[in-house]
Design a protein around this nucleic acid. Sequence first.
DNA 1: ATAAAGCTGAAACAAGTGTTTCAAAATTTG
DNA 2: CAAATTTTGAAACACTTGTTTCAGCTTTAT
Lengths: 291, 291
Amino acid sequence: MGVQTDLREKLISDYAKLSPQMQKAARYILDHPSDVALRSMRALARAADVPPSTITRLMSAIGVETWQEFRDHYQNRLLDQPASYAQRARETQRTENDANRDEHLLESICRTEIDNISAAFSPELVSRMIEACEAIEDARQVFIVGRGAAYPAACQFAYAYRLFCDNGVLVDGHSGTFGDELRGIGRRDLLIAVGAKPYIRDTVRAVEFARSQHCPVIALTDSDVSPIAMDALCKLVVRDTSQSFFQSFTAALSVMQALVALLVARGGPKALQRIAAAEEQLAVFDTYLED
Amino acid sequence: MGVQTDLREKLISDYAKLSPQMQKAARYILDHPSDVALRSMRALARAADVPPSTITRLMSAIGVETWQEFRDHYQNRLLDQPASYAQRARETQRTENDANRDEHLLESICRTEIDNISAAFSPELVSRMIEACEAIEDARQVFIVGRGAAYPAACQFAYAYRLFCDNGVLVDGHSGTFGDELRGIGRRDLLIAVGAKPYIRDTVRAVEFARSQHCPVIALTDSDVSPIAMDALCKLVVRDTSQSFFQSFTAALSVMQALVALLVARGGPKALQRIAAAEEQLAVFDTYLED
DNA sequence: ATAAAGCTGAAACAAGTGTTTCAAAATTTG
DNA sequence: CAAATTTTGAAACACTTGTTTCAGCTTTAT
């Protein structure tokens, strides 16, 4: 059962009880952990100046079934994934009885969602989000497009953005065709396009049109080579890994919300003031339930 | 120019000139860089759903002699950039000047979002989600309501749900008033209501109306005592903690997506069949961009 | 010293690796 | 429409992989 003992610690504590050759191997592993993750067992054995069989013996000595298991552990450490994702996935597949199947699925979804979010706030993405903010702040008008499953994320941003800026336009095709809504788009404007595979034709067309009018594009999508990301000023590539048939737009939504938060933070008191005004207006329309 | 050309950039810039299969491979590599460093070429090919030869061909297409060379490049990248999330968090906390203020904010948003998601998949919520699924499966019609900031989450569910069930209705007020859309709601139906503080009057009214018609309610909201959750058959209470002025709907969206995944999983092959049919229909309408 | 216990490394193994080849299929061209 | 060209994936390849086996080599205890 999954007592997630750290194999490195195990290696250290058992070190004294190992045979000389195994100690040699163990020592090399302790000194060169990344070799375990990246090189083959034989290559490691060569580097440690030890026959391959010694490594195998070392494995069983520290209570590890197979080299694969050991390597997986080190690979996950390198990726900074606290729990062995692959291993857990296998575990989940094993217990396939009907009673716990649903719980397993949800647990696995949870892990995936967290992974997706973590990846979305990687240092690289963070700096790209800051770039995106700068572009948004400089834009005359901000168009937001997202169809199908990506619509909610686009919608979320548009809704929040409009509470403190009045230059946001959600291109949703509700009011006639796309062409109408994008009319007049130009180099001083900005298009935020959201979409993952399968790419919806309308979204790609909107991006292409914007580009043809020299309007810069911020792409929130699933790949660097997504058609939406082509020639984009700023590519916000997020994971949409999911257990189900549908892609997950959780990370996309999260990034959208983060952009809003960032814009407000950078906007200072002026932004907050505008939000207050917007809220007041909504209150006038009796939108909210008073407590 | 530098021998140290970034192979990733090369892959992106040459992407358009590659053959379809190579694009498939290139795309997988771009989306899963750590697979290059950690897994074997054949394993990667399998994951990318491409024959091994395609990878070899891709190598020569981008001017790389051998897979080894390519892999080494990615391994070095992985080692150079140990920017583990936790580590980075500690680093950033040290420097507290204005330049890093944005990074800090995003960092903190990330943590909060992960917390929100984790809480949403707690054992208690998991079992409630399973209850919710059972209710949805038994319902004659499934109405989904969510206004304002909660609209995207409602929308997301409605979109996905409609791909495999035809008894879902998104109550969004687009087609006239709420009253119209909820007409005929009754004890055999189900209302899924989404909303957090500040509660929007329309949503609460919809819940009250449903209740008056003896229609059970599933509430996706921020508190057990939220007006939306009153007398609900099933309360899915998620956190919406956020660094910004706006609540975060990430957890709500995630739960919605999880519900969909669960419904599909429980629906078995029949559900998948329906999805296939829906996809086909979308293809007929030329919705998607072909690859 | 000598038998018992273990440790060690060469060799053998089945399975998996990266690469090349080649004929069929798909696409483009004339 | 057919011919020329490109693209594709299965098969074959030589080699490496992780593991097991086994005979020789310590070491140790009597």
